[in-house]
């Protein structure tokens, strides 16, 4: 297994050599820097990580709606679009920097940069350009607090997580998870101009949800991460410790998930629904905790990974519906 060094992993020169070698080996390009691009528009779209983007759009939208502030629908739509493009830009910067490790992981080997369809420099320029444009647009359309939060999110994901934490510590996705947790807070700030307790709780739900989600994936993809030299928790602390930590975070997510109801921000109906969802999360994590060490198929870990996606979507959908019902004056218990 190749290990990443403590000072941020591979050096810049070594990293670029790896990308170049991946391009040469895979596509037979003698010098990738001097070829004419064959990248399709769809390859640039793929750089934006559309699936992650869809989650960002959804959670930012929930943050925006639950703020319960009247807002022009055009301003709301453009704000969400700017947040989505900003998130996509950070994805492009991530793919630029991580091309060397993406090339050796089965899940990511076909991404535009490691596959040679887009050159590293093109991905970098695309990411920087969209970062600047999305932040400026959000600042002009909504307000500069929301734009600052978006800029910080891009910086946190592309620099703090991708360049620093990811190759250095098994706590990478714990701390880096903050980047994925900011969108509802940005959506909230876009319409209120401030950071409310409600948006902090939405941040916490995603922040605490991230470790069990990614560690469930890391359990059954540990070979991939090991080959790439990424110090994920199962590779560093072992599977037993990872399973215990997954369970602990699942309990925390379940508790934080019902806080909006406890603090009077959401209805009791939401609270009951969130409690049931949280109990499901704890149950699936318990199954992972009880998973025998000899189990290499790891169905419980795969089931938890799938459930975690459902959980996040469902809990934010519940917050959204609860907020809309309250706004419409619907009789919700």
């Amino acid at each position: 297994m190749e290990t990443a060094g403590p000072a941020g992993g591979f050096g810049q020169t070594e990293r670029m050599d790896r990308v170049r070698m991946a391009l040469v080996e895979k596509n037979g390009y003698e010098d990738a820097a001097f070829r004419v691009s064959e990248a399709q528009a769809g390859d640039y779209l793929a750089l934006l990580k559309p699936r992650v983007m869809s989650l960002v759009v959804f959670t930012a939208f929930v943050g925006l709606v639950t703020a319960q502030v009247p807002v022009n629908p055009i301003i709301a739509v453009v704000s969400i679009l700017a947040i989505a493009v900003g998130a996509g830009a950070s994805g492009a910067l991530n793919m630029w920097y991580d091309a060397d490790i993406d090339a050796v992981m089965s899940r990511t080997a076909d991404r535009p940069v490691p596959s040679g369809r887009v050159l590293p420099g093109e991905a970098l320029a695309f990411g920087l350009f969209l970062s600047a444009f999305s932040v400026m647009t959000l600042g002009l359309v909504a307000n500069w607090l929301a734009a600052s939060l978006l800029a910080f999110t891009i910086f946190f994901y592309a620099v703090v997580y991708t360049m620093w934490l990811k190759r250095w510590t098994p706590q990478n996705i714990v701390i880096g998870g903050a980047a994925g947790a900011f969108p509802p807070m940005i959506g909230w700030a876009a319409v209120t101009g401030q950071i409310g307790l409600e948006s902090v709780i939405q941040f916490l739900i995603i922040f605490l949800w991230t470790p069990p989600h990614f560690w469930a994936l890391a359990l059954f993809k540990s070979g991939d991460y090991g080959r790439a030299g990424i110090p994920m928790m199962p590779n560093v602390a072992g599977e037993a410790s990872t399973k215990r930590q997954i369970f602990a975070y699942a309990v925390l997510v379940a508790v934080v998930g019902i806080l909006p109801s406890v603090l009077g921000q959401a209805s009791a109906t939401y609270g009951v629904f969130a409690a049931a969802l949280g109990a499901g999360f704890v149950w699936y994590s318990w199954k992972v905790l009880r998973m025998p060490d000899v189990d290499r198929v790891m169905r419980p870990a795969k089931a938890l990974f799938g459930y975690s996606l459902l959980y996040l979507f469902a809990i934010f959908a519940a917050l959204l519906l609860d907020s809309v019902a309250a706004r419409l004056g619907a009789p919700v218990w």
Partner: peptide, 13 residues
Amino acid sequence: DTQKKARRGRSVA
């Protein structure tokens, strides 16, 4: 032809 087609697609986008 592949490069021309790709360039055209990027220009339209």
